[in-house]
Simulated assay, not measured.
Amino acid sequence: MPKNHAHVQEFFTARAADWDTRFPDDGPAHAAAVGALGLRAGDAVLDAGCGTGRALPALRAAVGPGGTVLGVDLTPAMLDAAVRAGRDTSGVLLLADVARLPLRSRSLDAVFAAGLVSHLAQPEPDLAALARVVRPGGRLALFHPLGRAALAARHGRTVTDDDVRAEANLRPLLARSGWRLDAYTDEDDRFLALAARTR
């Protein structure tokens, strides 16, 4: 998987136009993961690495019309695809690096991140950058519509112990980055790690 900005942009630019058609059945899984965040009406939430914005409608529904929904992605083509799909009506889209978010510290209640963590060039400082913009006690959902083994199989690989998403690796990584891992699910049809911002 790509790890630096240029590779991430190249990888996703090449796939942006048909991303939604390649994975047409992921919508309910995104909505269920958003539901696990426990958002309330009026909350401010960030979709970090929002891609084509598939989670934005569910995030908007969760926080209501008085809430704030931001979608941030590094790849212009993915944000363009989100606009073409009409998902910009659910939130504000920003072209930005999650490691350098143009947001005030402690300004958000939660972060949703689908497929993001395995694409981070520097997982610890990047997750710490996300922690900076979340209030103490705020929530983080690291999600993928496939579990680690199923995703590896899709790419013709096997799961390895050095996978950043393995619980034994993710728990201390989150702790060093300002998060406490509260729940961890790794099943064939879902990967979901829920964490809380520590003080």
Rank of each mutant, 00 (worst) to 15 (best):
F112S: 05
A81G: 10
G115S: 01
E187H: 10
L194W: 08
D73K: 04
P145S: 05
W179M: 07
D26S: 11
V159K: 08
A153K: 13
A33H: 03
D182E: 15
D43A: 13
L194R: 12
L79V: 10
T89Y: 06
P24W: 09
S105W: 11
A85C: 05
G51P: 06
G147Q: 10
H144Q: 09
A85T: 06
G71R: 03
A55N: 11
Q9K: 14
D186A: 01
L170G: 03
R148W: 05
A29Y: 02
E124S: 08
L116K: 07
D161Y: 10
A110Q: 05
P125A: 09
L46V: 06
G51A: 04
A196W: 11
F12D: 02
G66I: 01
L93K: 00
V45L: 08
G35I: 02
A29W: 01
R135W: 08
V134F: 11
R176K: 14
L79C: 00
R100D: 14
R22H: 12
A121Y: 04
R171V: 10
A44G: 13
G71F: 06
L94H: 07
S177V: 01
L79F: 05
R157C: 08
L116A: 04
R22N: 13
R154K: 14
P28C: 02
L192F: 04
R106M: 10
V63L: 02
G64E: 06
T68K: 14
D97L: 11
G147T: 06
V111M: 11
A29M: 04
V34R: 01
P123E: 02
R165Q: 13
G67N: 01
L181W: 08
A44P: 01
E124Y: 08
D26P: 00
H119D: 08
R148N: 12
A17D: 04
A113N: 10
A196R: 15
A14H: 07
A55R: 11
R180K: 12
L192E: 00
D97G: 04
V92E: 15
L120S: 05
P2N: 02
H119N: 11
A55L: 11
E124P: 08
L173E: 10
L74P: 02
H5K: 13
W179N: 04
L116W: 00
R180N: 08
R135S: 01
D88L: 02
L127M: 11
A61T: 14
V159S: 12
V45H: 06
D20F: 10
A33Y: 02
P136H: 08
A77M: 13
H144D: 12
R106W: 13
P136I: 09
L130A: 03
P65V: 15
A168G: 03
V83C: 01
V92I: 11
G91Q: 01
L46Y: 00
T68Y: 03
A131P: 10
G91S: 02
S118W: 12
R197G: 05
L37K: 04
F12I: 14
A33K: 06
H119E: 11
D186H: 02
H30E: 09
A62S: 06
G86C: 07
F112L: 07
A114L: 10
G35F: 12
A41Q: 13
P102W: 08
